[in-house]
Nucleic acid binder design. Structure first.
Lengths: 197, 197
DNA sequence: TATGAAAATGAATTGATATTCATTATGTAC
DNA sequence: GTACATAATGAATATCAATTCATTTTCATA
């Protein structure tokens, strides 16, 4: 059908990407259609041939990015590694993907938390993430690498919350340092904590 | 001066509070002055006798809440306790204050991250928090309770990020469970990590 | 109770921008 | 090269909500 052809076109992606750029720079509400159109090098009206409305641009942007993101995550984790290494790979991958696509990072960290209407979509996103974590942690417990008496719901929040905190700081610092280098020290904290032995 | 009298009045606080209610419910951009005025039981125009504009309502709300929040935090931590107990008290206090004032929790967790223009103000907020954490962690290291080889910048992000993650989940769950009960298990994770010994 | 200042009101103004659509351009089949 | 369909344009429209301000109400004082 026609819509498919359109959606796969270069023009479609340049608009999607322009949306990402402008939303990241100004936030959803301050971004205007005219700015997005200008960034993509098309007329304002053209946006509406490809997207239902402004919300739809954000929605499709998230959809596209999160799809690719989780494919990458899944690949990073699949395999026969021990749980602690899987956790390391997961976090490294997360930080690497966000470092390589700062617009996505900004939008995921702020719009996602902000916009309630995007929330249903986002729930899926963190669900997939949480499922990956559940797999890893349960495997680690079965192999005796991780403690048995863990409150799983809390541990997942603990892990994801801390990564997000690290990412937010990096975003606020305008990405002036290497984010990926935080991965291993962070996982060391997850595993061993801060207490002296 | 007149402004002082106004700012301390009941009406001022009812408008400030109404702002909190409506911002928390709809987010800053979808909230309207009319809704805030209605919630406070005043006319639209009255808002502008007490606040410069819509931004100013949010700004003063944050200012007021964060001032009280950090007084409370400081009190919770001051004293001669060992560092791990201080950390426990800090986290307990943080969760308790947010649980007792859900509007504040929603606004701090979403608007703060979202609105760049509020950021300078917010930097102060997390700076105070980080300073408290620095004090506690350094004390713990001096007393031999906490590990020496900690990357302080990361540890602070790790701690604050994880608490915020826990709070976000609670907010998203509409506050249906007891947030404060998460404090001790969370601090246990900070201290000992998830690895088996 | 009369008077004036301070406070409050809410309808009207203003500005902004998302969205539409009549028009123009582009490309393709014959 | 003509005719048709598809795509793109951008000025005009429609909506919405922040802010203003002429008018009214409240309230302290004499």
């Amino acid at each position: 059908m026609r819509k498919d052809r359109k959606e796969r076109s270069d023009k479609y992606y340049s608009m999607l990407n322009a949306g990402g750029v402008v939303f990241a720079r100004l936030g959803f509400y301050k971004a205007t259609i005219s700015q997005i159109a200008a960034e993509a090098g098309v007329a304002d009206g053209t946006i509406y041939l490809y997207f239902k409305n402004k919300d739809d641009i954000l929605y499709q942007f998230m959809n596209y990015k999160s799809g690719r993101f989780f494919e990458t995550m899944r690949q990073a984790v699949d395999g026969t590694d021990p749980a602690d290494l899987k956790l390391r790979k997961l976090i490294r991958c997360h930080l690497k993907e966000f470092q390589n696509d700062r617009d996505m990072a900004v939008i995921f960290q702020s719009e996602v938390r902000y916009r309630r209407d995007v929330a249903p979509h986002i729930k899926d996103i963190s669900k997939i993430y949480f499922d990956l974590l559940t797999e890893i942690i349960e495997q680690g417990q079965n192999d005796g690498i991780l403690r048995q008496n863990l409150f799983m719901g809390l541990v997942k929040r603990f892990v994801l919350g801390a990564v997000e905190g690290v990412i937010n700081t990096w975003v606020a610092a305008e990405g002036k340092y290497d984010l990926v280098s935080m991965a291993d020290p962070l996982v060391d904290l997850y595993l061993g904590g801060i207490e002296a032995r």
